[in-house]
Simulated scan of single mutants.
Amino acid sequence: MSGFIMNLHLIVTIGLVIFPMSACSMRFDLRSGATKCISEDIKSKAMSVGKYSVVNPNEGFPVPDSHKITVRKMVNSPRGVKYHHGDHVEAGNFAFTGAEPGDYTACFWAPDHKRPVTVGVDFDWRTGVAATDWSNVAKKGQIEVMELELKKLHATVISIHDEIFYLREREEEMQLLNRATNSKMATFSFLSLVVCLSVAGLQLWHLKTFFERKKLL
């Protein structure tokens, strides 16, 4: 059993190096009246969770109104479905399951003030296996440490398996696009060659007619 676990650990570790799970954790500055959008490529049926909070400029005191932000179209799917919205807030969180593959966008907007201020925002966005709270799984299930570890490994292997098929689909799409592009380029080259030969033939015919008129031939 221990040997199986070690081998499984090795496979998952290699897989994670090749196909890392998506976890975006950052801190950025947002000036008054400015908007910042962050995009994440999420697969269909992939779990996604995130949280954001304004950095308090006066620690120990409430966050001033000038540093509260508006979160518009917080998670905006490729079809324009809004999953989250916050108006004049200092913190928030969201969780959803991707209904379709594609780029999902999170946008933050700071209200415009007469005296411009810079608002710091902490943002953490996780998808796939990284979005699972394994501590809650352990508490709810009352399972052994080994079983919990196997659940983690099983979920990671499934995620890597789905990622491989997703990359294969993208590769097939790129191949089809390349073939279509090559076919169009070949047609365009052939037409260009026909036009060039036609123009050259017309020029020779014109020169021949001109010399015949001048009785040079």
Rank of each mutant, 00 (worst) to 15 (best):
A138L: 11
F165S: 13
E172C: 07
K152Q: 14
V145Q: 15
L176P: 00
L167Y: 10
L153V: 01
E147M: 12
E169C: 07
D133H: 02
L150S: 02
K152S: 02
M174I: 04
A138H: 10
S135H: 09
Q175Y: 04
L177E: 10
S159N: 11
E173I: 03
E163A: 13
A155S: 13
I143N: 02
R126E: 00
L150W: 10
M174R: 14
L167S: 10
D124C: 09
S159F: 10
S135M: 05
E172Q: 14
H154M: 09
D162V: 03
V137P: 01
G141L: 12
D162C: 11
L167I: 06
K152G: 02
G128N: 04
E163D: 14
S159V: 00
I143V: 13
Y166C: 09
I160A: 04
L150M: 14
I143Y: 01
R179L: 07
E171A: 14
M174T: 02
E163M: 10
L167G: 00
W134E: 06
L153N: 06
D162M: 14
F165L: 14
I164G: 03
I158T: 11
E147Q: 15
G128Y: 02
R170G: 00
K140Y: 04
E173G: 12
Q142L: 11
T156F: 01
D133F: 06
A180Y: 05
N136P: 00
W125I: 01
W134A: 06
R179S: 07
I160L: 04
V145I: 09
K139T: 06
M174F: 05
M174G: 01
L167K: 12
E173W: 02
L177V: 01
L148V: 06
A130E: 02
W134P: 00
D133Q: 08
M146Q: 13
R168E: 08
D162F: 10
D124R: 05
E172I: 07
H161N: 13
F165K: 15
K140P: 00
L148I: 05
T132H: 05
E172N: 12
Y166H: 15
E169M: 11
N178M: 11
Y166F: 07
E147S: 14
Q142V: 05
E173Y: 02
L148D: 08
E171M: 12
V137C: 07
D162S: 13
T132C: 05
R168N: 07
T156Y: 03
H154C: 08
E149R: 15
I164M: 11
E169V: 02
A138Q: 10
H161I: 01
E149P: 04
K151Q: 12
K152H: 08
I160C: 09
W134R: 04
I164E: 03
L176T: 08
E169N: 15
